[in-house]
């Protein structure tokens, strides 16, 4: 039995490609545990940090990256529509495919050829592209690793403490090394995925929920709000349900913003923790996962917004 196994090993290693890959994997795993290649404990920071130590507090890495994302999206768009041709080039083709796919999706939910589809499309399409690029840009090398050192003073100190508290959840090893940072200098990454900044996710959530109310009122008039406020003396049950509807509507802001933030922020933490545990190979697996999650979250944000828009334009009284 063992000789058979040995035989198969020999056949496996007689292939140069198999042998090289195996050697590379083993070498990378060995290098991962050597002290020179160890990655430091993850820099975990819930809030986007100010880049300039003495400058305006609002100039955060999240804001900088948002502008970068805008630039990337506009450049990609310009490349796609620059000298647009009837017979599309490769990039034009890809962008057309994306937009047509989303346009068909929008129509399938909001109604084919309906005015609603045309109204909703720019909102949900922009949400999708913006969120997708925001999610993916955080996966680029240099994000979280290129940055500046700030002296730990005042409010920064509090942020470090919070960061350490979060870091402790990662395990004893992180907690043991974390206190060394305290009191010294604080590392502030230059870039931060906008999706991992609650300001961005919150802004999109506010836009989504506000526009839902806007389209509801546009479609149904003031009667739209009757689903929240019913006369308790006429319809006691309806009034209670309406109250819950109102709470659900407000909590959408929280669910929208924290769903995206949580997924992307946690994904980045996972990547950092994996890199901290095993420097090579292990993070690669999670990069694949993060690519998937980044796409799904963009799609979820878009589809939920689209569904809420569409639901808001439908009168609920008709069903009774």
């Amino acid at each position: 039995m063992f000789s058979g196994l040995w035989k198969r090993f020999q056949i496996f290693f007689s292939n140069a490609r198999n042998r090289n890959i195996t050697i590379a994997i083993v070498a990378l795993l060995i290098l991962s545990v050597l002290p020179w290649f160890r990655v430091g404990p993850p820099h975990v920071e819930l809030a986007a940090e100010s880049l300039l130590e003495h400058g305006p507090k609002w100039f955060t890495n999240g804001l900088l990256t948002t502008l970068l994302v805008d630039l990337v999206i506009i450049l990609l768009a310009v490349f796609a529509v620059f000298r647009m041709k009837e017979v599309p080039g490769a990039w034009q083709n890809i962008v057309e495919m994306l937009i047509e796919g989303m346009w068909n999706l929008t129509q399938s939910i909001a109604g084919h050829g309906s005015a609603n589809s045309r109204k909703f499309f720019p909102w949900v399409m922009t949400i999708f592209i913006f969120v997708l690029i925001s999610n993916y840009i955080g996966l680029l090398p240099g994000f979280g690793s290129i940055g500046v050192w700030h002296s730990a003073t005042g409010e920064n100190h509090a942020l470090v403490e919070l960061g350490n508290q979060v870091a402790m959840a990662g395990g004893d090893a992180i907690a043991a090394t974390a206190p060394a940072e305290e009191g010294a200098e604080v590392f502030v990454p230059l870039f931060r995925s906008p999706s991992a900044d609650l300001n961005m996710t919150g802004a999109l959530a506010l836009i989504s929920v506000f526009m839902t109310q806007f389209y509801g009122v546009q479609a149904l008039g003031v009667g739209y709000f009757s689903k929240f406020f019913k006369n308790p003396f006429k319809d006691a049950m309806g009034a209670v349900v309406g109250f819950f509807e109102l709470i659900a509507e407000i909590s959408k802001i929280i669910s929208f913003s924290f769903r995206l933030f949580g997924n992307i922020f946690a994904g980045e933490v996972v990547l950092l923790v994996m890199a901290f545990l095993v420097t090579f190979l292990l993070p690669s697996v999670f990069y694949g996962l993060e690519l998937f999650i980044g796409f799904i979250q963009a799609l979820v944000f878009m589809l939920l917004t689209l569904a809420f828009f569409t639901m808001a334009t439908v009168s609920h009284d008709d069903h009774h």
Binding site: L46, A47, I74, A77, P122, D197
Partner: peptide, 30 residues
């Protein structure tokens, strides 16, 4: 959590501008 009304507003404005730009630049032509 890093939430401030200035940043929130800037993100809202950013999204609005991006949407208008993309609508004119990308969606309509495509």
């Amino acid at each position: 959590l890093g939430i401030s009304w200035e940043l929130l507003l800037s993100q809202i404005v950013n999204f609005g501008l991006l949407m208008v730009i993309l609508q004119q630049l990308l969606y309509k032509p495509v």
